[in-house]
Design a protein around this nucleic acid. Structure first.
Lengths: 225, 225
DNA sequence: CCCCGATGTTAGCGAGCACTCACCGACATG
DNA sequence: CATGTCGGTGAGTGCTCGCTAACATCGGGG
C-alpha cells in the first residue's frame, strides 16, 4: 500500500530542519526505530479497516470515530496519521491504483508473447479483485469524493493501467481501432470487478477456486470475441 | 417509473375516510384532475433529477434543498411528494428494478427459442444501461443506503430478474451447474453496466451505435464461452 | 537521567443538513 | 360563492460529524 501524495509521510522526518542531521543513521535508510514501526503499523491498520468500512457503509457513512475505533484508538487519534478523512480515502485509492499498475508492469515483463501477456494481465486482475474486494468496491464507487488533485493522480494511474491493456490487445487484434479496444478493456474490468458486488447477493456461488477459472475464461472470450 | 412501496401514493386519496366517496368518479379510475396530474409530473421530475444528482455526487452528497432546486421548488416542498430523502432513493431503485424485470418478461414472451431469448435479454439490458445510465450508477452504488424493508424488496426484484437469465442459460448450457450460470450472469451484468462508469473516463469511446453491438457481442461471448 | 517530540485522550466548536412548523395562495367541490 | 384541502415557503430546531485545542503519557537519544 504505497502512497505518494497525501501529506502524511510514513518515514519519520524528525529533526528535518536541522542541517546537521546526518548523525544517527544513514540518510537513505528510513531510520528503523521501534516508534516508527508502530506508527507504520497503525497507518496500515487504519487503511485496511477504512477500506472495509468504506466498502460496507460508503465513505460518507463512516465517521472518523469509526475509523479510530476499528483499530483500537478513539476519534481524533487518526489525525496523527492522516491530515483528514479525505486523505484516508485518497491513500486507499492511490495505493490500489499503484499496486494494480505495478503488478501489471511486472507480469508484462515476464510474458513471452502477446497472448501470454493478456492471460497474465487477466490473471493478475482477477487476483486483485478476489483478494482486495473491499478496495475494488471503494475504487469504483467513491472516486469522485476525492478532491481534484488526488482524483487526477488516481485517474493518471488508471489511465496508464488501461494503456497496457490496450497495447497488448492491439497486438492481438491489430484490425480493431484503439477506441474500441479501450472500450472493451473497460467492459472487461466491469466483468472482473463484478465479484465484489455479487459477493453479497444471496444465491450461493461456486467454490473460490472455480471462480477464478470462470472469470478468466469469460474475460478472455469477451475481449477476443 | 412505477413505485409500489414508499408511503407516497401517486393517486390522490382525498376523502379516503368517508365511506360514501363513490360520488365524483368511478372508484377504479384515478380521478384525473388537473391538480393530480401536476403532482404526478412533479414527482416524476424529482425522481429524474434525483437520479442524475445521486449519480453525480452520491446519495449523501445531495441535499433535500438540491432536490427541490433541481425542479424549481425549494427545500421542504419535496416532503409534499416523498416522506423523506430515503424514500426518493427507494422509489428510484424500486422503479429501476421493476422496469428491468418487466422488460425482461416482455421480451422473453416474444422470443421463439432459447438463443433468441438470450439475445433479447442482452439487448434489453443494453438498452437500459445506455438509456438510464444514471439509474444504473445509483443502482449498484447506493443500494445499502436503503432501509431493510426497501432493500429487501429491491433484492427480490433483482433476484427474479437474475432467475430469468439463469433459466435461459440453463436451457442453452444444461451441462453447467446453476450456481455457475448465476455467477456468469452477474459477471455479464458487471460487463454491461460498465458503460455508465467508463462514460466519465477521458479516452474517447466509439460511436453510440457501435457500442451497442460491441457490448452485445462481448456479453454473449462471455456467457457462452 | 532527563527532556523533547510524538502519540493518545477528552472536551468542545461550528457547519451542514434532514426534517418540522406556522402560514399563505390557489384550485376544485358543494 | 364559500370552504376545505393541497402544494409551496421561510424560519427554525436538533443532531451528527469533521476537526481543533489543551492536556496526559511514554519512548528514546544526548
Amino acid at each position: 500500500m504505497a502512497s505518494t501524495l497525501g501529506a502524511a509521510d510514513p518515514v519519520p522526518a524528525s529533526a528535518s530542519t536541522a542541517a546537521s542531521a546526518a548523525a544517527s543513521a544513514p540518510a537513505s535508510a528510513p531510520t528503523l526505530t521501534e516508534r516508527s514501526r508502530q506508527k507504520a503499523d497503525r497507518r496500515a491498520a487504519i487503511l485496511g479497516a477504512a477500506a472495509t468500512l468504506f466498502a460496507e457503509r460508503g465513505y460518507a457513512g463512516v465517521t472518523i470515530e469509526d475509523l479510530g475505533a476499528a483499530v483500537g484508538v478513539s476519534g481524533p487519534a487518526v489525525y496523527r496519521h492522516f491530515p483528514g478523512k479525505a486523505a484516508v480515502l485518497a491513500a486507499i485509492l492511490q495505493g490500489a491504483s499503484q499496486t494494480l499498475l505495478d503488478g501489471a508492469e511486472r507480469v508484462l515483463g515476464e510474458a513471452p508473447d502477446a497472448a501470454a501477456m493478456l492471460r497474465s494481465l487477466i490473471a493478475h486482475h482477477v487476483d486483485f479483485a478476489l483478494g482486495d474486494a473491499d478496495v475494488i468496491l471503494v475504487q469504483d464507487r467513491e472516486l469522485e469524493q476525492l478532491d481534484l488533485g488526488a482524483r487526477h493522480e488516481v485517474r493518471l494511474l488508471q489511465r496508464r493501467y488501461v494503456e497496457h491493456w490496450v497495447d497488448v490487445l492491439s497486438r492481438l487484434r491489430p484490425d480493431r481501432a484503439e477506441a474500441e479496444l479501450r472500450f472493451r478493456a473497460h467492459a472487461a474490468f466491469g466483468l472482473l470487478n463484478s465479484t465484489p458486488h455479487s459477493a453479497r447477493i444471496p444465491g450461493r456461488r461456486p467454490a473460490d477456486g472455480t471462480i477464478r477459472g470462470i472469470l478468466e475464461e469469460m474475460a478472455w472470450a469477451s475481449l477476443m470475441s
